[in-house]
Design a protein around this nucleic acid. Structure first.
Length: 729
DNA sequence: CGCCACATAATTTTT
DNA sequence: TTATGTGGCG
């Protein structure tokens, strides 16, 4: 078959990519650096396997690391196949695929099909409670990390032996905490993120029939898989042992979540004859940017060495700028954004810029400066919509409607809005419920109905409130949701949510608790309703359906409320691509982690000092270096690093040692002049047309003329989260 | 026991 | 600048 045959998608492949896409080997490992077209190659291989090898879409599993990546891949595959067949492919994050299998077949391993997903704050809450109760000196975050590691390890043989004996007092306490935690979750019928994977492994070990149809498995961002995910991959592919992975060990930045670079060696060991293919051309970055980035990553002596050759022009050297403090740094970044935009004659617009941060908390200064200058932006990663308190309250209510035995959710909202029941009583009730092996809901309900007096003292007034404003409305909502019993059509998701908000008098509650500031909270609530509407409209049940296995009974995943709730827990954030209010281009602010796999023409990396990168609390220096490498290699044409010399509380900083080691000639001390030659090389790298000089000149003159009265061309279409009142001195 | 007001400490990365 | 803890009042 020649390169030009068949589908158009194959024309866009280079030689190595084509070889990877069309490899006949059962197992293919594609290892390649940033910007070498890994994802493109993987999607093309999916298309190849379906169109040329003849594998049925529903017999293909594609596991990605984030929802964003899986949505994008789905779209790209859909484009290439062109007839909607991509809908059959089992594609998603490991967690979402695992959830689907567990909903369908989980009953076989004793799982209640109505299981909920314990998100971060759920498990943090449970563990904090346990630590307090056990009265050990365990730090909850430490315990949590330990438990998660324990689960994520999978059956990595070497590790299993080494960790056999935990002898110290501390490890016994951890062990106990672990057990308590698991039984707490079980009580509330919850699985945490790790459990989704662990239980799915259990399911597939015991019932391999579930995946008996699977012909081939493809994994994106393989370097970020952990032990359980490796097990899962093997189980998915058990029948045909046909696996394709793409990854880059240099971009492994999830070690803290138990990702194991070793998985690469395990793959080569467990699947001898794997076709190893490397993609060595970088199509993304200017060769200057690539050079400097490689100088950073090459400081790692242990790394798996790979070739990465620039395809693009030389471009200009990255800029390394030292500023007095973070305010100056933010000011400088924003002025540089404006300057580039202007001097490129708007060839480079706001959506071409990204500001990549080691930690979300660093966004403050930049956000307020952008806000002050009227530049619209979007923040990716960091604080999440679903984690806002007002949204979480509503979510907890919905979770209880779906599943009354969720003790934690109930305990959180039993006094929100205030019903005259305090922490002491809640704690006592929880304990009583546990002792009598009931759920909190059952206990309270029985009490209110007079069927069983609770030992804990509940005042009459409180009891009335509990009965009238909690049990009754929720019971009635639950009833109206049922499709079988009851009169008329069952309530849909949005109606449910709206009725709930009304029943709770939620607007009044918000006003009472937040006073004049309540409006933005209420706006969030309304946005939440909109999201639910969208979810209802978009999600058809068969979108995520697993193929039917003959003669093997399965449950259906048709409970909209359940799907909405797990969607919320498994989505890093709301998926709405906010394009600014009127489609205006937005500057992107993102954590480095959330930027993985993406690229921008211009990238700023602020706060490049020791303590930030490498982060003060990080224990793996190499991983921190890789993080910086990932950030730098997101840039196509222009890369800016900066370092404030003083940070809060008057402390001075020192430049990140990853950068300090480089010769100073690697960087420009300040932004380049952007004369015609520089700009046209930028244009060439980006494959764009640079406006003629006279236009650029005209634009920039106009800007200067209106420089002090620029209210006119400012737009204040800042995204919702920027509206939080924030003093911008 | 519940609630409010006030002071205080904390602040990596994500499914 | 936001979650936690403490103290006093009803």
């Amino acid at each position: 078959m020649s390169l030009t045959d068949g589908n158009a998608i194959f024309k866009s492949l280079n030689k190595a990519q084509y070889r990877a896409v069309s490899s006949e080997a059962p197992t293919v490992a594609i290892l390649a650096g940033p910007g070498s077209g890994k994802t493109h190659t993987l999607t093309s291989r999916v298309v190849w396997l379906i169109d040329h090898v003849g594998i049925q879409p529903q017999d293909v599993i594609v596991a990605t690391f984030t929802n964003k990546a899986s949505n994008e891949m789905k779209a790209r595959i859909g484009n290439a196949l062109g007839d909607g067949r991509e809908k059959g492919i089992i594609i998603g994050t490991f967690h979402s695929i695992a959830r689907r299998y567990l909903v369908k077949y989980g009953q076989r391993i004793g799982l209640d099909p109505k299981f909920g997903i314990a998100d971060d704050s759920d498990s943090r809450g449970v563990i904090t409670r346990i630590c307090k109760r056990l009265d050990t000196h365990l730090e909850p975050p430490v315990a949590r990390a330990w438990i998660s590691k324990r689960k994520a390890k999978g059956t990595s043989d070497e590790l299993a032996i080494k960790d056999k004996k935990g002898q110290s007092v501390e490890s016994r306490a951890l062990e106990q905490c672990f057990q308590e935690y698991q039984s707490q979750l079980e009580r509330s019928n919850l699985l945490d993120y790790d459990d989704l994977l662990v239980r799915c492994v259990e399911l597939l070990r015991k019932f391999p029939q579930c995946v008996s149809n699977i012909q081939t498995v493809l994994i994106d961002e393989y370097q970020d898989t952990n032990g359980v995910q490796y097990d899962l991959m093997r189980l998915f592919a058990r029948k045909q042992r046909r696996i394709t992975i793409v990854g880059d060990p240099d971009q492994s930045i999830y070690g803290w979540r138990s990702a194991e670079i070793k998985n690469l060696h395990r793959l080569l060991r467990d699947y001898p004859g794997t076709d190893e293919i490397s993609l060595e051309e970088n199509y993304r970055s200017s060769s200057c940017i690539l050079d400097t980035s490689l100088k950073v990553i090459q400081q790692d002596q242990e790394r798996y060495k790979k070739v990465l050759l620039p395809v693009r022009d030389k471009g200009t050297r990255p800029v390394l700028r030292k500023l007095k403090n973070s305010n100056d740094e933010a000011d400088w970044i924003v002025s540089e954004i404006k300057r580039i935009r202007m001097l490129s004659g708007n060839m480079i617009d706001f959506d071409d810029f990204a500001i990549l941060l080691r930690s979300a908390a660093l966004s403050r200064q930049v956000e307020s400066t952008l806000g002050r200058e009227g530049i619209a932006y979007r923040m990716v990663g960091g604080f999440k919509f679903y984690e806002r308190t007002e949204i979480k309250i509503l979510l907890d209510y919905m979770r209880i409607i779906h599943q009354p035995d969720n003790n934690d959710a109930l305990a959180r909202i039993i006094n929100v809005p205030k019903r005259g029941i305090g922490d002491m009583t809640i704690k006592a009730l929880l304990e009583e419920a546990e002792k009598s092996s009931m759920s909190l809901w059952q206990l309270v309900e029985k009490h209110c109905r007079g069927q069983r007096r609770a030992k804990t003292n509940i005042r009459q007034q409180t009891e009335n409130a509990l009965s009238g404003s909690l049990m009754k409305p929720l019971n009635s909502l639950r009833e109206r949701l049922r499709s079988d019993a009851g009169v008329g059509t069952p309530m849909n998701l949005v109606e449910l949510l709206q009725k709930l908000i009304r029943d709770l008098k939620f607007e009044d509650y918000l006003e009472a608790t937040y006073g004049a500031e309540y409006e933005s909270r209420w706006a969030n609530v309304q946005e939440f309703v909109t999201l639910a509407e969208e979810f209802m409209r978009q999600s058809r049940v068969d979108d995520e359906a697993l193929p039917t296995i003959d003669g093997f009974a399965q449950a259906t995943d048709d409970d909209l409320l359940a799907r909405f709730l797990s969607n919320v827990s498994l989505a890093s954030d709301k998926q709405t691509e906010d394009k600014g209010q009127e489609g205006k281009p937005l500057v992107t602010i993102s954590t480095i982690h959330a930027a993985k796999g993406l690229e921008w023409p211009v990238v700023f990396i602020p706060a490049v000092y020791n303590g930030s990168i490498p982060h003060i609390r990080a224990d793996d220096q190499d991983e921190e270096r890789r993080l910086l490498y990932v950030a730098m290699t997101r840039a196509k044409a222009l890369l800016y690093l900066s370092c404030p010399q003083n940070i809060a509380t008057g402390k001075t900083t020192e430049l990140s040692s990853f950068i300090d080691l480089l010769p100073s000639s690697a960087f420009l001390p300040k932004g380049p002049s952007f004369d015609r030659p520089v700009m046209s090389s930028v244009a060439k790298i980006l494959g764009r047309e640079l406006p003629p000089d006279n236009i650029i000149y005209k634009v920039s003159r106009m800007r200067q003329a209106t420089a002090h009265g620029r209210e006119n061309d400012r737009n204040f279409s800042t995204p919702l989260r920027a509206c939080r009142s924030r003093k911008s001195q």
